[in-house]
Each structure stands twice: as C-alpha cells, then as structure tokens.
C-alpha cells in the first residue's frame, strides 16, 4: 500500500509539472483528480465540522445555533427560483457582521497603530546635540516617513495628480514599486520553496536518492 501511495503521489506530482512542457492528457488527468478530491474534501470537512461537529453536537448546549442554522437554510432557498430572493438575508447578515468586525479592527490595527509607528523623529539618538545621529537611523526614518506619506498621497482620489501633489504621488508610486520588488523577491523564494519541497519528495521520499 505504501508503495502504491508513493507512486501515485509521484505520478500526480509529475503530471502537474508536465504542464510546464505543454497542456497534455497527463496534466488534465491530474488536474481533474485534484479538483475532484479537493471539492470532495471541502464537502466532507464542512459537513463533519460544521453541520455535525458544530450544529448537531452542540445545539443542546447552545440554542443560538438554530439562528445560524436557519440563516443557512435560507441560503439554500436560492434553489427555489420563486423565493430565491430570501437568500439575500443571510448574505446581508454575513456582509454586515464582517463589516462591523473589520471596521474597528482595520481602523485600530492598520491605521491608528501604523500612523503611530510612522511618527518618529527624523534625527535619531543624541537629539539634544542636534544632528550627530547615525546616518543609518536617519535614512531609515526618512524612508518610513516619506514612503508612508507619499504612498497615502498616491491613493488620494479627490485631487488630480498635478503640481507638487503630483510630484509627491510620483514619489509614492516609486516607493510602492520598490516594495513590490521586495515582495516579488520574497515570492520567488516562496515558489522555489514549494518546488524544493516537491523535489525533496521525488528524489528523497520516492526514489531514496537523497537523505
């Protein structure tokens, strides 16, 4: 059984990788198996974790679960075209609850705390004597302050990007692009890691060539 599982994993891994050569039946088979299994996995997980694990096993202790179950049932009414509109109510509930939760969280974590973290002295350490601060610290502060400020200018939609404002916006997009470059580098690392993981499986677990 272990041999079969290893060979099946390797067969599917190579099948997906074969897409790099070109679209082919091997890839299509692997893709279909992947899509089918993952869709099935989600159905099973949600059924056992939500419907059984959470609702069926828990309604005695928490009658409020019936409210959720009722909203979930309303969602299914979409299947009946005549009263399908009722399914918008649970949808409204989801959108409303999520917005309520995130409004405060975003404002607090992504705006207030970040604005606070941006407010830092441009001349670091040794303030009393003025400009004798380390250049590294000064540049680092400048990058954070100027980058955040001009980035905000770029995403300000109420004013045309002209004149000094336009200049600031251009500096902003410059910073944004540098950030994207760093991000790109990190993602290359991430993707390579996934490939390394598969290579380790193929050459190590499957063929036993590496330790």
């Amino acid at each position: 059984m272990e041999h079969f599982a290893l060979w099946l994993s390797a067969f599917l891994t190579l099948g997906i990788l074969s897409f790099l050569y070109k679209d082919n039946p091997w890839y299509k088979l692997s893709e279909a198996i992947f899509v089918g299994i993952s869709a099935g996995f989600w159905v099973v997980t949600l059924f056992w974790d939500n419907l059984v694990g959470k609702f069926w096993d828990g309604w005695q202790d928490e009658p409020m679960l019936f409210v959720g179950a009722a909203l979930g049932f309303l969602m299914l009414l979409r299947l009946v075209p005549k009263i399908g509109w009722i399914s918008r109510w649970p949808l409204a509930f989801i959108v409303g609850a999520t917005s309520g939760l995130w409004l405060m969280n975003y404002l607090a974590s992504n705006i207030m705390v970040q604005v606070m973290a941006t407010i830092q002295p441009l001349f670091s350490t040794g303030y009393a004597s003025g400009f004798d601060a380390g250049w590294g610290a000064i540049i680092s502060s400048l990058v954070i302050v100027v980058g955040t400020f001009t980035g905000l200018v770029y995403f300000f939609f109420s004013k045309e990007h002209k004149g000094a404002f336009g200049g600031a916006a251009r500096v902003g997009i410059f910073f944004i692009m540098i950030t994207f470059g760093a991000s790109f580098g990190y993602t290359v690392m991430s993707r390579m890691s996934l490939l390394i993981g598969r290579m380790d499986f193929l050459l190590g677990d499957w063929l036993g060539m590496i330790g």
Partner: peptide, 17 residues
C-alpha cells in the same frame, strides 16, 4: 509566514504588533 506574505508583516513587526 510564507515568504509571499512576509513583506506585509514587516509593517506589523515595525509597529510592535
């Protein structure tokens, strides 16, 4: 974090979160 996400997290690291 996966490397894809890491750059975004530096803002939280910098703010002490």
């Amino acid at each position: 974090n996966t490397a894809v996400q890491a750059p975004v997290m530096y803002a939280y690291l910098n703010a002490g979160q």
